[in-house]
Nucleic acid binder design. Structure first.
Length: 546
RNA sequence: GGCCCAUUGGUCAAGUGGUUAAGACAUCGCCCUUUCACGGCGGUAACAGGGGUUCGAAUCCCCUAUGGGUCACCA
């Protein structure tokens, strides 16, 4: 068989060679030792989720920690799945979470010398490599129709052998030049298949940077390299692109583990070095007592949009992700409370290889601790930007009362034991919403031992002695007096000792006041809040209840 | 079904032949305290099961179970 002739017959217009690409167009990057080149390679379906972010974070850290390069490559080889505007969505989402690309697809076109970065624009490159494989006798055209393929499949099932296109089942494997020519003249559509030399009995071993040594049977399937439209399958595109883009580390989900043998055979057949594979575990979720993979249909918390809508701070999400990415991160964080997350020495071998359960509780806890370190003015800006996008009706109130809001956000945060009330925007706004008259609502009930009449009496007394310029101590002493005068213990300890002597204690009195002013039975310090709200607002709220 | 991967408290997890089996979140109790939050102290709670190997196994091997992935001209 004259493979060269076959190759020219199939690809008469391909005149470039692999070495042209390897040496002239995409030469070695000349990066310092240890610099890692990684890539995020999403398909433009318009849906980017937490799992993507998780993997992207690994790519980003690997590249930027080693002075390497982080590439965005768009895997748009499947026309059916393309979604308009998806690339913009992907870039915007990743940027929101502070993941920056050095190279590849971008909002304003591509940057970098190893493009194009859209696979749909790389057809000539793939065809050059395919042609080369045909010349080697390791690829061939296959003219089988879908019907023929499913017929083969049926028979394999009937005979109880492995399904697929391989060995003696690969009927077009040894077509003669004349047969190929006849098909071509007939304008029959065809794909290019890889000619596998693998024996299903053989196994190979490979080191995965996350999972360690893994072994599996070698590939023996003649998988499709180029589809009928001349566009490559994922397998072929992965091998060609990652080689030519000089990618050193391939980070991808564990669903790719089972096709690793294909990639292994492709790389070795072409005589190319394998990248370091890093197969990440899936994010899981607890559902009715069983652990299962997060699903984009059933689980809104998988979508990045979910966190953006609730207004989680990107730094909090990153921080949380890092805690599940590297098991020693939390320990490091305790020792380096004020360091940037970028200073943490992220390593692949500290990554778990079993699926982590996504834990909203933990995210919230992490978020509290992240936000407590962010200045109130910055939180204000973040809150405002969030509102502009997701809760427009509060933009005006927020802007009009900017100074007060900043103070409210900062209450109790500037001490050795700062309050950690702030988690995410939706919750933060709720937390301070009582300030705004249009959102103020009485949601909690007075303590059980106090009825409406009693509450009115206490509030009246409070209003009569209220002096807005009292300091915190003077203010609270007055409350103790009111308590005592009305039969409440001025100190909770007194009440505890002799509960039968009192109607309650000073805490009950302050609760009544808190409810009158804030509408709820829990809040930060009343005096501080009153100072922020101003005398008029305080007096009005009390007045309206008596 | 074949093949591959995984399995330590409710969750994330440390652990790589000898540990009282860490720590964090959650939970519960106590303390601090005018509420809440913060903080402090303490408690409950785990090596999926069964066989080996070994003086000794969470750690090595085998089997079983469970969960996950994959078997496309999708990625």
């Amino acid at each position: 068989m004259d493979y060269k002739k076959l190759a020219d017959m199939l690809f008469p217009n391909i005149t470039k060679t692999i070495s042209y690409y390897e040496e002239t167009l995409f030469p070695d990057r000349g990066l310092p030792d240890g610099a890692k080149v990684t890539r995020l390679a999403p398909s433009p379906t318009g849906f980017i989720h937490l799992g993507n972010l998780y993997g992207a974070f690994v790519d980003e850290r690997l590249a930027h920690q080693s002075n390497g390069v982080f590439i965005l490559r768009i895997e748009d080889t499947d026309e059916k799945r393309k979604v308009e505007g998806a690339v913009e969505t992907i870039i915007n989402s990743l940027e929101f979470f502070d993941l920056r690309f050095d190279e590849g697809a971008g909002i304003n076109g591509e940057t970098g010398n190893y493009g194009p970065y859209f696979q749909s624009n790389r057809a000539e490159i793939y065809q050059t490599v395919a042609k080369h494989l045909i010349e080697m006798g390791r690829a061939y055209p296959c003219f089988c129709s879908e019907e023929e393929l499913s017929k083969i499949r049926e028979q394999q099932i009937a005979e109880n052998v492995n399904t697929g296109y391989y060995g003696k089942w690969a009927v077009d494997r040894d077509l003669t030049l004349e047969e190929v020519k006849k098909h071509l003249d007939n304008n029959d559509s065809f794909v290019i298949r890889f000619k596998s030399m693998g024996n299903p009995e053989d196994t190979f071993e490979i080191d995965d940077a996350i999972r360690g040594r893994i072994s599996s049977p070698v590939n023996f399937q003649d998988i499709v390299l180029l589809k009928a439209n001349g566009i490559p399958t994922y397998h072929f595109a992965h091998v060609v692109d990652d080689h030519l883009m000089r990618v050193t580390h391939v980070v991808r989900g564990e669903e790719w583990l089972s096709t690793l043998p294909i990639h292994y055979e492709l790389f070795t057949t072409l005589g190319w070095d394998l990248p370091v594979y890093c197969h990440t575990a899936h994010l899981m979720k607890m559902d009715n007592g069983v652990k299962r993979k997060l699903s984009k249909r059933k689980d809104p918390e998988l979508g990045l949009e979910y966190y953006m809508q609730l207004g989680y701070h990107p730094a909090a999400v990153r921080e949380y992700l890092m805690t599940i990415l590297n098991s020693n991160f939390e320990e490091w964080r305790i020792q380096n409370p004020d360091s940037s997350i970028d200073d943490f020495p992220f390593t692949l071998d500290k990554m778990s290889n079993s699926g982590a359960l996504f834990d909203l509780n933990k995210l919230n806890d992490v978020s509290k601790n992240v936000l407590v370190k962010i200045p109130a003015t910055e939180i204000y800006d973040f809150l405002l930007n969030w509102a502009k996008e997701y809760k427009k009706e509060i933009v005006n109130p927020l802007t009009e009362h900017k100074d007060a809001v900043i103070k409210l956000l900062d209450v109790g945060r500037n001490s050795d034991k700062p309050r950690k009330d702030l988690i995410y925007c939706e919750q933060i706004f709720d937390f301070i919403s009582y300030y705004f008259d249009e959102y103020f609502k009485i949601v909690d009930n007075y303590p059980e031992n106090i009825d409406d009449q009693e509450a009115k009496k206490l509030l009246k007394a409070y209003l009569e002695t209220y002096n807005h310029s009292d300091d915190q101590n003077q203010w609270f002493e007055k409350i103790r007096v009111i308590a005592a005068e009305n039969g409440y213990a001025a100190k909770p300890k007194d009440y505890k000792k002799n509960p039968e002597m009192y109607k309650g204690h000073v805490g009950d009195v302050s609760t009544v006041i808190r409810i009158a002013i804030m509408g709820r039975s829990t809040s930060p310090d009343i005096w501080e809040l009153q100072q922020i709200m101003g005398e008029e607002k305080v007096r009005n709220r009390i007045q309206s209840l008596i």
